[in-house]
């Protein structure tokens, strides 16, 4: 699409403003993490930290069991992403590509399930896990988050599958691909943006969840990072420097994950489509 130069400049300027607006609180979080405690509060707030310290980061990573928390969180979050993508993709294919009795009912169910109040299911789920002897096991946490993220993932992947013209697969099959080959070579590349969007969603959901992790995982070295993050909040108040440093570290893996896969998402409108 051709645009006027002025239009392009305006659009990019709006982009820059938006970045600033969205990034400012993030900047505040990160810069606070580097400020000495006495500079954190100030009657004259400093936009730029006048002195830098690694003290809060040091406190944060030297908390006991920090690396156990990191390992558990990574394990739980990636398992959730994979499990939820695999199960949802199968269902999405069935829903988007096939006509069958009960399809509408299934879709309605997916939507209704989305309204389930997970926080309110904490007590019943705890009782069930307790009776099944699943407490204190990481797979229990993965299953819980998998259920949290499944409906959105099914629904979203369905719309991505549906957006791929069916004749594309057929064309590929005519070219001699098997049905599986057709899916892998033609459909899957087109699904990347959807898989990434839902993957980030599942990752963040699992990565950030606090209450179930607190209640289901009882042994300290089996807990996840949100519990570590909460250790900077006490009955007496919040350790701001510690919380901000911990939150900065906490957010990093998501950013890394995103940067690793972004080329599949950010490569530009239409770039992913119909190259097969």
């Amino acid at each position: 699409m051709r645009r006027s130069r002025a239009g392009t400049v305006t659009i990019n300027a709006v982009g820059v403003v938006l970045i600033c607006v969205f990034a400012f609180p993030v900047y505040w979080m990160v810069s606070t993490a580097f400020k000495p405690t006495i500079d954190i509060l100030g009657y004259e707030p400093n936009l730029w930290p006048s002195a830098l310290t690694m003290e809060h980061f040091h406190t944060a990573v030297t908390r006991p069991l920090f690396f156990d928390y990191v390992r558990n969180s990574l394990l739980v979050a990636t398992s959730t992403v994979l499990l939820s993508a695999a199960v949802a993709l199968l269902a999405a294919l069935a829903v988007a590509r096939m006509q069958w009795r009960g399809r509408r009912g299934f879709l309605t169910l997916v939507l209704i399930v989305q309204t389930a109040p997970f926080e309110a299911l904490m007590i019943p789920m705890f009782i069930i896990y307790r009776d099944l002897g699943l407490l204190d096991r990481l797979p229990a946490l993965v299953l819980t988050y998998f259920i949290f993220t499944l409906p959105f993932t099914v629904w979203t992947l369905r719309s991505f599958v549906a957006a791929i013209p069916a004749d594309l697969e057929e064309a590929a099959m005519v070219d001699g691909c098997s049905r599986v080959g057709a899916y892998v070579r033609v459909v899957l590349p087109l699904l990347w943006p959807g898989l990434i969007a839902t993957g980030i969603f599942a990752f963040i959901t699992a990565w950030n969840e606090f209450l179930f992790a607190l209640v289901i995982m009882q042994t300290e070295d089996r807990q996840t990072l949100p519990l570590w993050l909460s250790s900077f909040r006490t009955a007496f108040g919040t350790d701001w420097g510690g919380t901000m440093a911990a939150s900065t570290l906490f957010t990093l893996p998501v950013l890394v994950f995103f940067l690793a896969v972004q080329h599949k998402l950010v490569s530009g409108l239409g770039a992913g489509a119909v190259k097969g």
Partner: peptide, 20 residues
Amino acid sequence: QVQTWDNIGEKLTTAMSSKS
């Protein structure tokens, strides 16, 4: 097991009702 203050009520209630 060092406990943090956030939601300690829920944590105590559930843990004290379980086998572990």
